[in-house]
Design a protein around this nucleic acid. Structure first.
Length: 343
DNA sequence: AATCCGGGGCT
DNA sequence: AGCCCAGGATT
């Protein structure tokens, strides 16, 4: 890997990149009036989520929770409700916990280095480097999916990677050498901006690229073929759920804190915990969706409340139709309930 | 080291 | 309909 050559050209690379960024940076709300809080919120929301999706959530979030203290005093249900539809809901819970921890720290004692920020919930190597470089000029380079893509192309790295984590590790040293020590936050954002707007996964716009002259992948015509990341295999899975109405109420399951995922969200109950047998009749609704490596078929069956056990298990609740809007759901559950209520 | 989390936008 | 995306926690 020609990283030695690239490292020697680091000053020229940095200059070309930052000049381009100064001219072409998108006007994003978390850039217009930067604060540590706004930076933290944006970095949590942007994990595995595209800018366009985040925009409306970010604005609403800052209006509702303008600072760490206000977020810290909100209820978890409110916080999850505000996150509804963004996905990866543990991010919201972790951001809430982080706000509670940060609120207890006098502002002058808030850490400004990425190693310290790693201790906060929901903050991994990427977020720690992003937050500290942007907010405190800490010289920590980020390695996200964009950076991996850019550097694999610039170095014409045709290695086969099992996953993005392994690829990120292989660029840790190079990306740190390239970092602009004068403006680490802008440099990091410039790399990600370049990946998001020019160095696309498919059909990279090399003719507009400010660092094309450093790009071995471009010179060799293989930019589009790297990085080589193993493809994930999908697994089919089906889940059976119950739609049970009793007058103007519908039965829901609140996912407990002891669960592995989607804690605190509500969902249409699965059949097994309610001792409901899978009907032979056609389901009321059939929905397909993909989550990570699963293709899930959700079968939603209609039951009469009379079929339920005498005593409902814990965490199951009847909710008035008029109150459904107040509870947090994941996007799909929110959609299904809306669709089924219209029937 | 492997596995899991959701959703939307784009081609 | 598939593919991808400003990753982190858990085991």
């Amino acid at each position: 890997m020609p990283s030695d050559n690239l490292a020697k050209q680091a000053p020229a690379f940095r200059a070309a990149l930052i000049d381009w960024y100064d001219q072409n940076a998108r006007d994003l709300p978390w850039r217009s009036a930067p604060s540590t809080y706004g930076t933290v919120v944006s970095e949590f929301m942007l994990q595995q989520t595209q800018v366009k999706t985040v925009l409306p959530y970010f604005d609403a979030w800052l209006k509702k929770y303008p600072n760490f203290k206000q977020l810290a005093t909100a209820s978890e249900e409110q916080v999850l409700k505000s996150w509804e539809g963004l996905g990866y809901y543990s991010r919201a819970r972790n951001l809430h916990k982080l706000a509670k921890e940060v609120s207890e720290i006098p502002e002058s004692e808030l850490p400004t280095d990425s190693k310290s920020w790693l201790k906060f919930p929901g903050v991994g190597p990427y977020a720690a480097a992003a937050i500290c470089s942007i907010s405190f000029d800490d010289p920590s380079a980020v390695v996200d999916g964009n950076v991996v893509r850019i550097l694999s192309r610039i170095t014409a790295d045709e290695s086969d990677y099992k996953n993005s984590t392994d690829a990120a590790k292989s660029y840790r040293d190079l990306v740190q050498e390239l970092l602009n020590p004068e403006r680490p936050g802008d440099h990091n954002q410039a790399m990600m901006e370049l990946g998001a707007t020019v160095c696309h996964k498919q059909s990279p716009n090399c003719l507009l690229c400010p660092v094309r002259e450093f790009c071995k992948g471009y010179a060799e015509g293989i930019a589009e073929e790297v990085p080589k990341l193993a493809k994930t295999k999908f697994e089919d899975k089906s889940v059976n759920r119950a739609w049970i109405q009793d007058g103007k109420r519908v039965l829901l399951h609140k996912i407990p804190d002891s669960a592995k995922r989607m804690k605190g969200l509500h969902e249409l109950p699965e059949l097994l915990p309610l001792k409901l047998a899978t009907p032979k009749a056609k389901p009321l609704a059939k929905r397909k969706r993909s989550i990570t490596r699963y293709r899930i078929t959700e079968n939603i069956y209609k039951f009469s409340p009379a079929k339920l056990p005498q005593q409902l298990p814990t965490d199951y609740l009847w909710v008035e139709h008029s109150k459904l809007g107040e509870l947090p759901f994941s996007g799909p559950h929110r959609r299904w309930i809306t669709e089924l209520l219209d029937d």
